[in-house]
Design a binder for these strands. Sequence first.
DNA 1: GTCTATATGGCGATAGAC
DNA 2: GTCTATCGCCATATAGAC
Lengths: 205, 205
Amino acid sequence: MLLSTERLFWTGFVSIKEKIRKEAMILFAEKGYSAVSMRQVAATAKVSVAGIYHHYPDKKALYLDAVRYAFSGKEEVFNKVWALVCPPEQTLVLFIRALFEVLIADRTFHRLLQYEIMNADAERLQLLAESIFHQQFSLLMHLVRKLAPTQDAHLMAATIIILVEGMLRAQPINRYFPGRKPEHDQLEVMAEHVTQLVLRALQAH
Amino acid sequence: MLLSTERLFWTGFVSIKEKIRKEAMILFAEKGYSAVSMRQVAATAKVSVAGIYHHYPDKKALYLDAVRYAFSGKEEVFNKVWALVCPPEQTLVLFIRALFEVLIADRTFHRLLQYEIMNADAERLQLLAESIFHQQFSLLMHLVRKLAPTQDAHLMAATIIILVEGMLRAQPINRYFPGRKPEHDQLEVMAEHVTQLVLRALQAH
DNA sequence: GTCTATATGGCGATAGAC
DNA sequence: GTCTATCGCCATATAGAC
């Protein structure tokens, strides 16, 4: 029986390629593309450098595959939110919370996203926006329109994402600004703050 | 007459060290610490590699000096805002606009700031927060308290900065999301959007 | 204070055995 | 499909002439 080495049936097994991809993803997220060497990836994934080059033509291909892997399947959490039948205000609350949860739970994803937004060229940004985040953004715009038909839906959708991501990204430095309290780091407090901010902006229209 | 080579009197002259620092700053901002080599800095600044090592003990020292240089003197623009005697609403409008303008005018500063927030260790983040941005943050909190005494001033001050910086940071990718219009890239539109968002949040208290 | 020349090691990538 | 061994190059950093 022929089996792809990429996906095998028995649990707990990961192919060498999957192991390389996963460890590369973690390293690239932690230190950035240039600061990670193929030797480090090889050592972490417990293969030889040549072993990596059997699966990937070069370092850039490994990076791109790691990014693609990190970004895959992120919609599922949000589809549960969109599937729920409830008032749009409640959907907004759940979406904001889900976005916080995804970024907190997968710090590797969050950091790779930051690196990509900072350094990816136009072509890769377009791929990212149109192939990976397009549907979520559209659904968020649709939700905004339901809550405030006259509001600029694109601007508000972008604002929601910027607020959530920004609150998390700013956490480490905000720790050193005056007035910081322990509860500012709590998901519930952050989510409530963002939700109130957005709802007030939308209700004003 | 003995003169420090760091600061000379006649205009237009820049010492070799200043030239190295400035070119290093631009390169580090553009590509990140690891992606920049001493050879590149040397070539760009038109000195030999050994010439750099005469002024700096190692690459990290050069980077830190470049960051320090990029972050110096940024308060001046804001001090003009705080010096103006006008209603707090107007001060908020001017601050938000000034923050947009600083980040747009000095893209090098903005990118180095992003890299630092992403990658600096706790000690360097603390230095950044307490030595460089502390006063602006405090003044912003004070302004928030004037507008809404019962509001969480730290949270709102952080939110204002996150919103402004986030709008600019998200610009390249937002270009590829549905509903994007040319006017979304205009400073006036972004500033007005952020201002309205913040004012509504504050007036609700 | 700036240079040429060089030391030393890590880098991405490949050849070829098994 | 994974390895050991190696290539050629570039990295940071230094020595010593001028």
